[in-house]
Amino acid sequence: MEHAYLGIDVGSISTKGVIIDKDNRILSSEYRWTEGDPIGAVKELVRSLEAGFDKEKYKIVATGTTGSARKLAGTIVGATMVKNEITAHAVGTTTFYPEVRTILEIGGQDSKIILVENGVAVDYAMNTLCAAGTGAFLSSQAKRLGIEVEEIGDIALRSKHPTPIAARCTVFAESDLVHKIQNGHSREDIIAGVCNAVVANYLNNVGKGKKIESPIVFQGGVSKNTGVVAAFERTLGCKVIVDENGHLMGALGAAILAKKSGNRNEFDFSMEEMEFHTREVTCGRCTNNCEIICVYRNGQMIDFWGNRCERGANFK
């Protein structure tokens, strides 16, 4: 049996999974919406991954999880490596693009920039308090304009004169946008303006003070939006690479990190049949009132977290 490695990236909007062999070749991959149910999404993801995977030839010896639900996902799949999404994306991208200097990433609720020198990440920044200029902003504006978020790119590319839209803050951007609509700007110009605003916002916030050097790889859900890609290329004045597997880079990074770490625990596909649920409990043993999350498998608690101190450590 050859060894294979599973990587799962559970984001706020979408859940991605990939199985790779020892040479980082993709054996099976899957992408689906998280829809506010990370546990259900992971189970469905594993089911789809299993369908396209040769269990006679390979066995999964290590599993890595990443994304904002990495801890929860890691617990239910028995991960050997749980890693933050920045490191996972850096590792995934540099494995496939060793020459890359800048990684731009815009996801559903956060955005980041990773600077790379000689194949290793040397600096990064992430959006701070608000989710301005992320996928969530694009989705809500698409809804306002009565189009699907997937259509934004094609419509934006038809625009000749993108409408300037205030980019500093999403709330201001939105009121500016409404004003421009009511003033009679055409829909494609508005939509192209929204794409420009996302880019301007990203470069003003996350990219502030960072030296963006080429080659540039753009990923995260928003990289599927050709309007935003075009706006980046126009603003930065150079080509921006969007990999067809760009959305899988976090999952790939998690799988590669799991492979590298040396921790081994054979993955069991039967987890998709098990029943998992979580329960939030307030500890109440001191005035911090920590919210502790308990995870149960088939009714038995397998893990918990969220306590700030030892008083909550032996939580039952």
């Binding site: 890693k83 933050n84 920045i86 290793v120 990440a121 600096d123 990064y124 308090l129 700030r308």
Partner: peptide, 26 residues
């Protein structure tokens, strides 16, 4: 640059700290 805002969860902070340490280790 880490700005604390009394948020309840520590997840955002941990993600940033963890990746910062990874960058140094890289």
């Amino acid at each position: 640059n880490l700005v604390m805002d009394g948020q309840n969860g520590t997840a955002g902070v941990e993600t940033r700290l963890e990746s910062f340490i990874d960058i140094i280790r890289f």
